[in-house]
Structure formats: C-alpha cells, structure tokens
Amino acid sequence: MTVQFTIDGLEVKAKEGEHLLDVARRHGIDIPSLCHHEAVEPIGACRVCLVEVRSGQKTTITTSCNFLVEDGIEVHTDTAEVRKHRAMNLELLLARAPKSDVVRKLASASGVTRTRFEPLAYEPLPNCILCELCVRTCDMLGHHALTTVGRGDKKRIGLPFNKPSDNCVGCASCLSVCPTQCISVKDTPTQRAIWGQKHDFILCKVCGAPVITKKHRDFAISEKGLPEDYYDTCEKCKQSAASKRFASVVW
C-alpha cells in the first residue's frame, strides 16, 4: 500500500512499512545520522536523525531512521526543537568521540564546537559511539563474532570474554561501516591484524599481493559456493589476464 505525506512541505509517496529516513533521502532531503545503514535494521541508537512529526493534534520529536511512514503526516526536518535536541545529542556524542571527523563535522553543523562534558572515550575503542553498526553488520554477514556487552553506562562493543573469536573472518566490514572509523585494522603484505588476532591473506598466485583473508574465503566458499580459484588472484592480475585472454580471442 502507498502512503502519502509531506516532508518540509514536499509531497512524497512511499510504501507502507518504509522508514522515514530512507524515504527522505530518496527525495534528496538530507537528515544527518550516524548509526543508520541500509544493509541492517535501524535501531535508533545515535538519536541524531531527529525530525518533528505532526499528526492531527499531536507533534512529536522522533528519530526518522526507525519511524514507519504514515499516511497524512507532516514531517519537518529543521525546526527549532529538532535543532536544539540534535545539538544536545551531538554534544553528548562529541564527548565520546572528540577525535572523530564525522562527529565533529555534524556537531559543528549543529553549532556545537565544544562539549561541556568530560571526555568519555573507552579503551580499546576510543571514539566508539556505541551505535552497534559493527555488531549488526557482523550478524547480518553471518559471522556473529562481535557482540554488545553489558548495558547502560557500561555498554561496550567487543568479543565474548574479550578473547579473539573463531568466528571472525577478518573481513573488516566492521571498520567499513563504523561511522567514526574507530576499529583498529592493520594490514601487512601477508597478514591482517584485527580484534586481537592475525589473519593470513591469500596471496595472489601471480604477483603475491594480498587478496582476501583465508578465513573469509573459506566462509564465502561454503556460503556462496563459487569455486576456490575465483579467489586466488589479485584484482590487477585478474584484469591483465582477462585483457590478454580477450585480446587473443578478438584478434
């Protein structure tokens, strides 16, 4: 079923069951957010993507990432209330992630250039804003290596018992999705160090460049079923091999 409503005066249509943030972005309306990623379910953690929703007599401030669109609502993305509360939440986040460029940029766009709170970073993930994108992604990928530990002010991101996990394949997606890029991934020509363990790379059979971690390839083979030799050459060598092959066929 289709629903129709307005965002900042613009008439928009969406499917029932869609989330407001996705619909707004599709229509080119920018709502800042930190914990949202289309590949995983929204949880409304960062509280930055605030909007004001008017429905009948009721006006509420709400996060747009996990708000299911409704027919006839009136959405405002830039009211004084929205700005005020977004600024406060960003000020809280700035104290957690003072060195994160993304947080600093969003905060300063909301007029927050310093925080009145003491730094709140925690080891070994300074700048972590506890948005759980890494955990949600790790689960979505089927690895289940990472988890959210504890609750309340003791909530952390980590591994069970703080010990390296057999389930981690070293894909580093956790870093890719991390809004503050606070996860440590260190690559050498032969190994990747991540979450307290080292993963061996498969090295390109032609040039020896790293392709993918062995464990990640094994996981992909068992889950996705492509043959092993798909993964044994680096991107560049594959490309030149393909070019040569094509050249020999065409000419």
């Binding site: 289940h144 988890t147 959210t148 609750r151």
Partner: peptide
Amino acid sequence: VSYAQMYGVATF
C-alpha cells in the same frame, strides 16, 4: 544461538 549472542545477553 551464537556464542556472541549468548555472551551479549548474559552480560545484559
């Protein structure tokens, strides 16, 4: 359930 979930729930 995954061991990570087990631990995550238990510590909750």
